[in-house]
C-alpha cells in the first residue's frame, strides 16, 4: 500500500516521543545550565600547573620539553635565574596562550616531572582576544589537592610514582638546594 512506509515511520516517532518520558536511553539531553551532567574524569580541556605546597613553588622545573613538543607552540617559558645569574629550576615566566592551545595533552604526556596536567574547566570568557586568553603562571597554578579532586585515579597513581621516586633518591645523600623535591601529596 502506498504510504505504508510513511505510517510506519510516524509510529516510530510516536514511540520515541512517549518513550522519552520514561526511558533514559531515549532522552539523552539535559537542560544545561540548570542541570549539569557529571564530568567524566578523563575529560581534558586546558593545561594547568601543579604545585604541592605554595603556588609560587611549582613542580615545574622549566626544562622546556613541553614548550618544544607543543604542536601549536602555545607554551612560553623563561627559566628563573638567581642573583648571580645561574639558572634555577623554576620558571620565571610560564605562559600558555589559550587561544592557540588545542587541548591535545601532548605536554602532559611528555612532561617527566608530572608538573602539567589537564583541567576540567572549559569556560574562559574574555573581552580581549590576545591578553585575555593568555594565562600566566599564577593563573595556571593549581594545588595537588585540586588535581585529586578532578582526577582521583590518575592523581593517586602520580603520587604513588613520585613517592617511589623520592624514596629511591633519598637513599643516597639527598640533593641539597631542592626544597620542592619532596612530592608528598598535600591532599
Amino acid at each position: 500500500m502506498f504510504g505504508l512506509g510513511l505510517i510506519k515511520g510516524l509510529a516510530v516517532t510516536a514511540r520515541n516521543l512517549i518513550g522519552s518520558y520514561f526511558d533514559r536511553e531515549r532522552m539523552t539531553t539535559v537542560c544545561y545550565p540548570e542541570e549539569i551532567r557529571p564530568p567524566i574524569e578523563n575529560f581534558r580541556n586546558f593545561p594547568f600547573l601543579v604545585y604541592d605546597e605554595r603556588p609560587d613553588d611549582l613542580r615545574c622545573v622549566a626544562c622546556k620539553i613541553c614548550e618544544k613538543e607543543c604542536p601549536p607552540q602555545c607554551i612560553f617559558i623563561i627559566q628563573r635565574r638567581d642573583d648571580q645569574g645561574r639558572p634555577v629550576k623554576q620558571p620565571e615566566v610560564f605562559d600558555i596562550d589559550l587561544s592557540v592551545c588545542m587541548s591535545c595533552a601532548i605536554c602532559v604526556e611528555v612532561c617527566p616531572f608530572d608538573a602539567i596536567k589537564m583541567d576540567h574547566k572549559f569556560d574562559y570568557p574574555s573581552d580581549n582576544r590576545f591578553r585575555g586568553l593568555l594565562a600566566d603562571k599564577m593563573q595556571l597554578a593549581r594545588s595537588n589537592a585540586y588535581y585529586h579532586s578532578i582526577r582521583p585515579t590518575e592523581a593517586a597513581e602520580v603520587d604513588a610514582r613520585l613517592a617511589a621516586e623520592t624514596a629511591k633518591k633519598a637513599k643516597p645523600a639527598p640533593l641539597p638546594a631542592k626544597p620542592n623535591a619532596s612530592a608528598a601529596p598535600s591532599a
Binding site: 607552540q73 607554551i75 612560553f76 596562550d97 592557540v100 590576545f130 591578553r131 593568555l134
Partner: peptide
Amino acid sequence: EWEPTPHDAV
C-alpha cells in the same frame, strides 16, 4: 599577526 607566545620563526 601579533600573538602573545611567539616562537622560532614567528
